[in-house]
């Protein structure tokens, strides 16, 4: 790739010709990197603006031209935001919902997917098509009757069992949703059938094969499903909005929106609170980058 040192006149001519040949290529590469850098800048800018706004004094927020780097940065804004916006309480509620949801999804999702991938039975693939078809059902179609159902079960409201979080937790224990069953199944199908056959000949029950042979091999997909389920729980807005009616029950997403709804909140505190809610997810990304990227790629393999 690099230009050879000029050893002779012939060499110089060769280098010139080489340059002429490569010039269009270099221009294309240059343009490519330029475009990528500009686009990257556009994608980073909003996040940068969120953090920098969070660190400004009120007077720096509303000036033109804008202040890019506040001086000195108001780290105290984060403390104030976290006090006004009861971050720890909301975090506790979010985890109270999300952790059991992740457990339920991984346990029952892998269990159900075992039935759809490691066992061979009549109508299996027809039933699985039904599972996939349910992904296309818009949530609003079942939203109203589900709410009425949970009301009848007496699981809405902070004084009920599970502190009113039941409607958000319990459904995860029924396979964890079509999409997760699909992800588990995709992975379990790649494990050679011989493993199960050998165990069956040795008299292993299906439960033992699932628990002692298949589950240990399914760790990568368990990580992927856990990660996306966790993210989904952290993100969920409509579910908590419908089922949680006391501020004591609010999740981070709901609390953040509630914080925004108060007139007196200034943009610096608003951005500080948004940053605080976003930061754990970004840290998670850097900790589990490979699980993220491979997991996302996995979801798109086959339509």
């Amino acid at each position: 790739m690099g230009m050879a040192p000029l050893a002779s006149r012939g060499g110089a001519a060769k280098v010139r010709r080489c340059w002429q040949d490569r010039l269009p290529h270099l221009v294309t590469r240059g343009v490519l990197y330029l475009v990528l850098l500009i686009l990257s800048g556009l994608f980073i800018l909003p996040l940068f603006w969120m953090v920098t706004s969070a660190l400004k004094r009120p007077d720096e927020l509303y000036v033109f031209p804008p202040v890019w780097i506040p001086s000195p940065p108001q780290w105290g804004n984060f403390c104030r935001a976290v006090t006004f916006f009861p971050f720890l309480k909301y975090l506790g509620n979010t985890l109270y919902i999300t952790v059991p949801v992740v457990i339920g999804t991984v346990v029952t999702g892998s269990f159900v997917a075992y039935g759809f991938s490691r066992l061979d039975w009549v109508w299996r693939d027809k039933v699985f098509s039904l599972v996939l078809a349910t992904m296309m059902l818009p949530y609003p179609v079942t939203m109203v009757p589900l709410y009425l159902l949970w009301r009848r079960f007496g699981l809405i409201g902070i004084d009920t069992p599970l502190r009113g979080f039941g409607p958000l937790i319990i459904p995860a224990y029924f396979g964890g949703g079509a999409f997760n069953i699909f992800l588990f199944r995709q992975f379990l199908m790649t494990i050679p059938t011989e493993l199960s056959e050998a165990a069956r000949i040795d008299g292993c029950s299906e439960f033992r094969i699932y628990r002692q042979i298949i589950l240990p091999l399914a760790k990568p997909v368990m990580a992927t499903v856990s990660l996306f389920t966790f993210l989904g729980g952290w993100n969920d807005f409509l579910g908590p909005l419908i089922y949680l009616n006391s501020i004591e029950q609010y999740t981070l997403a709901l609390g953040l929106r509630d914080f925004q709804g108060q007139y007196s909140v200034t943009a610096d505190l608003m951005m500080a609170a948004s940053t605080v809610v976003t930061l754990p997810i970004i840290l998670l990304f850097f900790l589990a980058q490979r699980t993220f990227i491979q997991g996302i790629a996995l979801t798109g393999i086959k339509a």
């Binding site: 686009l39 990257s40 994608f43 909003p46 996040l47 969120m50 993210l231 952290w234 993100n235 807005f237 981070l252 997403a253 953040l256 929106r257 948004s274 940053t275 809610v277 976003t278 997810i281 970004i282 990304f285 993220f292 990227i293 996302i296």
Partner: peptide, 11 residues
Amino acid sequence: FFIPSIVPVVS
């Protein structure tokens, strides 16, 4: 390019 897609929707 990926990180903005995992920022919580409300944020």
